[in-house]
Design a protein around this nucleic acid. Structure first.
Length: 588
RNA sequence: GCACUCGUAGCUCAAUUGGAUAGAGCAUCUGACUACGGAUCAGAAGGUUAGGGGUUCGACUCCCUUCGAGUGCACCA
């Protein structure tokens, strides 16, 4: 729509002898209840026109109509100049879309971006919160790819630490040699079971100590189980063979479980980092920071950074005994990732409870003079809450990822069978279809919401399959495919009609916005922009479909034209959904 | 206590980044199939955008304030 903007700039120049820039021209889509497609807000021009908004709009409108061939008419309502663009223009726009087989993929921009997501702990299975993380990360990566980036997906696995030792210890003490095979459980669930066992036994010990007269705090520190877990961590760090062996065994169980869940979720990674390899990194950065005077050393030998001038606190970056803390590792890992890939941008998909941590992390790297630090971004997303409050793994109040996926597939199966349109499919195809639809509903449900916002999930209310949902869009796609299969001799050439029906025009306008939607979603790292766009397009198509017949159109040329319109809609829907990690079926 | 985030229809979410009469879906009520696929379409009803003040031609959006919710403020990760 640049030509409207430019013409408006000229109009103001010509009419009022004033110079404005393209940024002063505020274009928006005309509201449905008014005539026209594009609206110019005239208020910003009243200063230079020294006239009321209506009259200013009238004058600009007349100028545009006289000087821009595409402008077919205009009207003014309360200072809003609504422009009607000639159908020939929109038809031409559609021609461009139709002839571009790769419509919806932006050219490579030569930039490399890393998306780190998932980042699970290896002491428990994945739950709904992780699901949101995984879907967000995967989707953002897909969007950036469509926007022309080279994307590297990474997973930083938190595979060591006291929490891992807790499940190891509990298994050792109470497990009786149980394995995933003997228990008939997925490995991650088995390990998670012992994490819960640890917590239960630990609490018992605390209660007992309290009865013996200790305070809560003393009891927490002195309970034998926690002491044993700490001991185990020390042994692990010392490389104790027995502990390492147990650690490897149990981690293998967990990874087998995770890989099944990842597969179901449809997410993948180009590169794994393990904290057991990276937890000692970052010490050289501490040295560097001390040398540059960014950090300072206290008398006890601990190293700090003072961020009070930036509105933050003093922050410890290295313990007095010379060992790392969380942020030390993250400093080191950030450097490692950059050394490995040299990316221009790096996105951390991590919950908003770590907002402060990432603020500090990025600020430190900037102060250290790392040029690449400006490309770091924390994609902070809100927690998934249950009606009962927050999910807690230790207390077992979580919505388990595997259970949820199974539940979604079951519901998809019920709904699909009730409609009875796919009875003739082979059994394997049916199962695949139920999976696609169930996951489509779940993924869309989680991704249509702005990532920043917290999200409420009620396990007692099943995820919808009607209305503003994934299956609605999947259905629209399947329906188009069905219609297209019935068009005879559909050539690649289409003849454009002379004029457009309202619903046809609406469809073309929406289609033409696809590229902007991708760029915006990429810029904001926001899948919900794509999700809402896809819904809007599907809805607009369904309305078009209801008002106008494709197969019974007045002429054969019109059949082909509407077929082309449908085909492009299906492609854009498919591409949008692919950016959300959602498959679209041919039938459902 | 300090800091950050948030508060929109009964519920779940939008609102072109300061623009028109705040829009969708679900739920409720009503209508549309001897079908180009009804997982659809059309309509009704539902709002003092938490409350108050300010800036502006114009505020859900920006500023101040009160109330409410969440998160962070570990030599844990």
């Amino acid at each position: 729509m640049d030509f409207i903007t430019n013409a408006t700039v000229k109009a103001v120049e010509h009419l009022y002898n004033a110079t404005i820039t393209a940024q002063d021209v505020n274009l928006q889509q005309t509201r449905k209840e008014f005539e026209g497609q594009i609206t110019i807000v005239t208020f910003p021009f009243t200063k230079v026109s020294r006239k009321g908004p209506e009259q200013t709009g009238q004058e600009i409108g007349e100028y545009l109509q006289a000087n821009v061939p595409e402008v077919a008419g205009f009207n003014i309502i309360k200072g809003f100049l609504n422009i009607s663009i000639a159908d020939s223009f929109w038809l031409n726009v559609f021609k461009g879309i139709y002839e571009n087989e790769n419509f919806g993929t932006l050219p490579a921009n030569g930039k490399k971006v890393m998306v780190e997501y998932s980042s699970p702990n290896t002491n428990k299975p994945l739950h709904l919160g992780h699901v949101r993380n995984n879907l967000l990360g995967y989707s953002v990566a897909a969007i950036l790819q469509a926007a022309g980036y080279e994307v590297i997906k990474t997973n930083l696995v938190n595979d060591r630490g006291i929490h891992i030792c807790k499940s190891m210890l509990a298994w050792q003490l109470f497990g009786n040699g149980e394995t995933p095979e003997s228990a008939g459980m997925k490995g991650d669930h088995l390990v998670g079971k012992y994490y819960v066992v640890f917590d239960k036994e630990y609490k018992k010990q605390i209660d007992q100590l309290k009865e013996e007269g200790k305070t809560e705090e003393e009891a927490k520190k002195q309970a034998p189980l926690i002491l044993q877990a700490q001991q185990m961590l020390q042994k692990w760090e010392a490389g104790d063979e027995e502990v390492i062996e147990l650690w490897k065994t149990m981690n293998t169980w967990v990874y087998e479980g995770f890989s099944k869940t990842y597969k179901k979720l449809g997410v993948d990674f180009d590169k794994y980092y393990y904290e057991s390899n990276t937890y000692l990194l970052g010490k050289d950065i501490i040295e560097e920071g001390l040398a540059k005077g960014v950090f300072f050393k206290k008398e006890d030998g601990s190293v700090w950074i003072d961020l009070t001038e930036d509105g933050l606190d003093q922050k410890l970056v290295l313990r007095a005994d010379g060992t790392s803390v969380y942020i030390t590792q993250d400093l080191g890992t950030a450097q490692l990732k950059y050394d490995d890939f040299g990316m221009n941008e790096s996105i951390y998909v991590v919950g908003n409870e770590q907002d402060y941590h990432f603020k500090v992390l990025f600020l430190i790297l900037q102060k250290l003079g790392k040029a690449w630090a400006n490309g770091l971004y924390h994609l902070s997303y809100g927690m998934v809450d249950l009606p009962s409050g927050k999910m807690k793994s230790r207390e077992g109040t979580v919505v388990d990822a595997d259970d949820l996926i199974a539940e979604m597939e079951r519901t998809a199966k019920e709904q699909t069978e009730a409609l009875g349109k796919t009875g003739d499919l082979a059994e394997a195809d049916k199962q695949h279809l139920y999976h696609i639809i169930g996951m489509g509903a779940l993924k869309y449900f989680l991704l249509k919401v702005d990532p920043k916002k917290r999200l409420l999930f009620d396990p007692n209310e099943s995820v919808d399959f009607q209305g503003h949902t994934g299956p609605f869009i999947q259905y629209t796609h399947a329906r188009i495919k069905s219609v297209l299969s019935k068009i005879q001799n559909a050539g690649s050439e289409i003849l454009l009609p002379d004029s457009l029906q309202n619903e046809e025009r609406d469809l073309i306008i929406l289609q033409s916005q696809f590229i902007d939607v991708i760029s915006q979603a990429a810029k904001e790292y926001n899948p919900s922009a794509v999700a809402n766009y896809a819904y809007e397009l599907a809805k607009t198509y369904n309305k078009f479909y209801h008002e106008h017949s494709v197969l019974q159109a007045e002429s054969q040329n019109l059949v082909y034209f509407r077929g082309g319109l449908s085909k492009k809609t299906a492609q854009i829907l498919s591409k949008s959904m692919q950016m959300l990690g959602i498959e679209v079926p041919e039938r459902m």
